[in-house]
Design a protein around this nucleic acid. Structure first.
Length: 125
RNA sequence: AUACAAAUCGUCUUAUCGCUGUUUGUUUACAAAUGGAGGAAAGUCCGGACACCAAAGGGUAGUAUAGCGGGUAACCCCCGUCCAUCGAAAGAUGAGGACCAGUGCAACAGAAAGAAUGUACAGAUCAUGCUGUAGUGAAACCAGGUAAACUCUAUGCGGUGCAAUGUCAAGUAUACCCACAGUUAAGUGCGACCCGUGCGUUGUGGGAGGGUAGGCAGCUAGAAUGAUUUAGCAAUAAAUCAUCCAGAUAAAUGAUAAGAAUUCUCUAGGUAGAAUACAGAAUCCGGCUUAUAGAUUUGUUAUUCAC
RNA sequence: CGGGUAGUAGCUUAGUCCGGUUAAAGUGCUGGUCUGGGGGACCAGAGAUCGGAGGUUCGAAUCCUCUCUACCCGA
């Protein structure tokens, strides 16, 4: 699998995002938190759509929010081959919960941990 | 050495892996080529362009501006200049029209602060607040002061904003629109009020559509940028030549590695370590205001030293 | 993109429109008295240069300009 993260893989539907906050389950790996739900996706041939989010309350400057989101996207791009959806389709949203700005290495390490816990969570259910 | 003014830059290079606009080629997802944040993109404080709202009405109210002259598409902007205040100077700052149109206001002190009146001393006088000085106060004998007090004068301002607006496809209830004919009472649109003006309710005929989630246009070639010349004290304008320089939409512009540059710290051979500001386009321009590590250039002021 | 509200003792509010003598009140805090002690009541006291900067004025919490923070509303 190629290590890219293009427009088609981003979660954009407002309805699915509302569904996530109502019915989604979550796994955590500091400083990240992933909310996910099993649902049908608008794009054909994809097993997983995701999106990233940073709280405006915790990071007031647009510059720092942009930087954190870029780091999260980069980490997801490099590590998404670890995701195993077992043939089901999932939508998810990754949230950043820390007030501090971390380095790329730390975010990537957390992303690996997060994806492993996600795999465990959907296997056990 | 010090201070003042004006202007500029505000990390760079290479490799690998990605994101995104456009073009081309295969083909419907890849490949190649080529673009991809700022001086403030910010605050949203002013002024416009553009679009729609009945035709873009009249008056009142409201609101903004305020020496004089010029610049500009326009301005609460910019330039020149006079005056006032601050500074040793260069220079900086200024909502700087009118209290002989009217109304109001002035704590404390003071005889008296506005249909005013009278203390002490001296002088003058037939006599007297008649004259001067003192005293209170920010302002005191006069038809004073105060308009960032109401107000007056002059000038400007219709409203809403690209989620404007147009268009395409999907699709369902009669709440929508147009034309004609009759009706003029309530009501309602035109930012507020008054005037004025449009609509109205019924019938006939025709067109089509609310809400929801989308695609496309608007959407970036412009009061554009750079250079030169000319006019002008200047702001700025004109001419010629050259250039194309972000268009995302749950929202691109990034990550890693190596090297270089600048600054600081330790040590004094040079190595080692740390840091590199403020901050991220969302219709587009012209300003203002605020944030900003550090670096550079030009001009000017007074003092000292040297020649 | 557009519009609005608030900021004053530790906390909650007056005063701001229409400038003036010591910025007012409740609660909380500190000390004292009453009680064997606590609670409670009573008495006394401290605590603010009015979010920040500049301007107008003789004088500014109040008027004007800029700015910061928090919150709300509309499309």
């Amino acid at each position: 699998m190629k290590a890219n993260y293009s427009k088609q893989e981003k979660l954009k539907s407002k309805k699915i995002i509302d569904l996530l906050f109502e019915e989604g389950r979550s796994v955590k790996a500091y400083p990240l938190r992933m909310v996910f739900v099993e649902t049908a996706l608008p794009e054909e041939g994809l097993h997983h759509q995701t999106s990233v989010s940073v709280s405006k309350r915790q990071h007031k400057l647009a510059v720092s929010r942009n930087r954190i989101k870029r780091l999260m996207r980069e980490a997801y791009r490099l590590e998404k081959h670890r995701i195993d959806t077992k043939g089901m389709t999932f939508a998810s949203l990754i949230l950043y919960t820390s007030r501090d700005e971390l380095s790329q290495a730390e975010v990537r390490k957390a992303m690996v941990k997060l994806i492993n816990r996600f795999n465990d969570a959907i296997t056990s259910s």
